[in-house]
Nucleic acid binder design. Structure first.
Lengths: 227, 227
DNA sequence: TCAAGAAATGAATCATGATTCAATTGTACT
DNA sequence: AGTACAATTGAATCATGATTCATTTCTTGA
């Protein structure tokens, strides 16, 4: 008897795995998921196509892993931002800011993660990411609005609490959160379009403040500019 | 000399074209774009695969045509709805209502049109559709808010016009419109998910009124329920 | 230094579906 | 009742890329 996988061996394996995922991420960041053929990833990772199948059952599984890892990062960032904000207005600002800024740096990758055609396995992961965003924002809104569930959709400027709840005009936090996530994402479609020149810095600032303002307005806080 | 395409002949051709597109639409409405192979469409249209290439240069072109036709209808409906609404609040209500109701009838097709993976040529068409929605809503908002461009993002309840414009807190109509379209669409993702049972009628009503409320709130009209 | 496996290679397969095209059938006109 | 050309067929081809696997190249412990 003679060979036994040792610590170093297994570490190497882990590293290989990482290097493959990293290569895949680079390829995607350069040309999107469409460019991420197994051959292209292998080339970038400087290994054979066959080897990739030692580490992943198939292409979809590799892409899913890459997406999931990236998802994790992105979601964590948003969660942190939301956690630090205590008012609905602050959440609105943070989310718009963080979302847009992260997207425009790493433009191509953001476009791939958010909008590109992906295999089903990856799409599943994308839905999870979106749900994560929504859950995070919704939780933040719930927390910020103090009480239990629905978010007051309307200015609470005149009187803080009108007493009698009019259910008709309240919005479940989840719907609000979805709306915000979807609304911001939709506003990034053109901005991230790879066939288009990247936006100027001032355009980015303008977009962020517009999105922030709109969201704050929707949440009923900060009805007009607070300076 | 002997054969000459005649009126009837050309009418038939037109009919064939329609029947192929209609077949494709049916297939898509049943199983999404993924199910719309040339073979499947041919089967549904009761013709050979070859014939399809007499009428369309290739599969993408066929799907693009189908999508474009459907797009046209959908956009027209929204445009009509927006045109009839004169205030921002009315636009918010119309758009939410029409969008959601049309989507849940024709669930599968709506899902395909809005969310499914599509070939590039179709994706292009989808972007056009989205831009159409945005343009329509933006135009409506501009019209409703009387003056020229930016939409006041905030309650205009306290005082109608504060005099000095604070640009910081205004939102370009296009951003607002995009936000609304994206926000509503995002809220349909789960509702239209083909692997999920369709929503109950009361869920639909609840969603519509929540979306409408949130949108009205964002637009700064109707801060709290107007009964 | 060797034997036993593990890691890695990459050209040869496979799978899937779009696309072609030689052959057949239909239509309009004399 | 035939000719000229259009419409239609569908099996055979192609294109693209993922996936396999026989072979070669390391690693480890004795």
């Amino acid at each position: 008897m003679a060979y036994r996988p040792t610590a170093r061996t297994r570490a190497n394996a882990q590293q290989r795995r990482l290097s493959i995922e990293s290569a895949a991420r680079h390829v995607i960041a350069r040309g999107g998921f469409a460019a991420a053929s197994v051959a292209a990833v292998a080339r970038e990772a400087e290994c054979s196509t066959g080897l990739i199948y030692t580490y992943y059952a198939n292409r979809d599984e590799l892409l899913r892993a890459v997406f999931a890892r990236a998802s994790g990062h992105e979601l964590a960032v948003i969660e942190t931002a939301v956690a630090q904000a205590s008012t609905a207005a602050a959440i609105a600002e943070s989310v718009a800011e963080v979302f847009v800024r992260r997207a425009v740096t790493g433009r191509r990758l953001a476009h791939a993660l958010l909008f590109e055609e992906v295999p089903d396995a990856v799409q599943l992961e994308r839905l999870i990411l979106r749900r994560g965003y929504v859950a995070s924002v919704a939780a933040g809104l719930d927390r910020a609005s103090g009480h239990s569930h629905p978010v007051r959709a309307g200015a609470e400027s005149p009187s803080a609490a009108g007493g009698a709840a009019r259910d008709v005009s309240t919005v479940p936090a989840e719907v609000a959160a979805r709306f915000i996530v979807g609304g911001i994402a939709e506003n990034l479609v053109d901005v991230l379009d790879p066939t288009t020149p990247p936006p100027r810095p001032d355009e980015i600032e303008a977009l962020i403040s517009a999105l922030s303002a709109f969201t704050r307005s929707a949440l009923g806080s900060d009805p007009l500019g607070e300076k």
